[in-house]
Amino acid sequence: MSDINYWEPENLTDAVSILADRADQVRALAGGTDLLVKMKKGLTNWKGIVNLKGLTELKGFIYEGQTISIGALTQISALIDNPLLSLHFPALVDAARSLGTPQVRNLATVGGNLCNASPAADVALVLLMYEARLLIMGPNGSRQVSIQEFYVGPGQTVLQQGEILTAIEIDLPPLNSKGVFFKHGKRKSHEIALVNVAVLLTPHPGRKQIAQARIAVGSVASTQLRIKDAEDSLTNSLATLSAFEQAAELVKEAVNPIDDVRSTASYRKQMVGVLTRRALVEAWGEEL
């Protein structure tokens, strides 16, 4: 096995320029839990690694008004340990808890979960539901994209050569809203999702009608999706089991899963409906 080149830039500017200059030849390394597994399986043809570990400014949380900014290099385990996230973004913490194992969570980063662009990614799915903004630095300066625009296909994002994801911003969800993350796998823990779902429901004052619904689903299409038809069907409607069932049907119609080693397309389609309904019931949180 031939060896690879290796860089450890001390700042963002250097990291960007090394990545930009070497074009297709090199990859950024964050926690390595996706990158190294791929490298060992021989699935890669690149020849160098740019370790981002020196970019300590990309790690941790910044709070500003209604917004929390999560550094791209923040470890998944740090999400679980953050009491403010548990309070305001419980679905994000649930997704973090469900990701891999304690050992993997101590290595894996939030940015890596997004940039790897797996349709099954757990933390990334909840960030889609929370409508994250992604901050990117590249050879031509910084830019921002909404998470909805970030994915191009499985394993593919809008990141251009030399671009590094630096931070993920999320706004506090509407008052009285509740977010829920559900994941379906073969085992209870340590499992990549066969299907995963993140929803958020905001009630109208008085709590009979739904003011706003958000539904994000994973592992059922080439990228993770928000299902607008299903969300719209719930806006201003009464919160009833049949409304949630109808929304779940619309989700099933909108997705396009595949058969693979973990599951079949038809099972995934069935389960995304079941999971959506359950998540909506849980997010409403009262007797229906």
Binding site: G32, N51, K53, V104, L107
Partner: peptide, 15 residues
């Protein structure tokens, strides 16, 4: 690593 458990098979030695 710094007191936290990690899988040493997916950590580069240089890291």
């Amino acid at each position: 690593m710094d007191g936290k458990p990690v899988n040493s098979c997916i950590v580069l030695a240089v890291d």
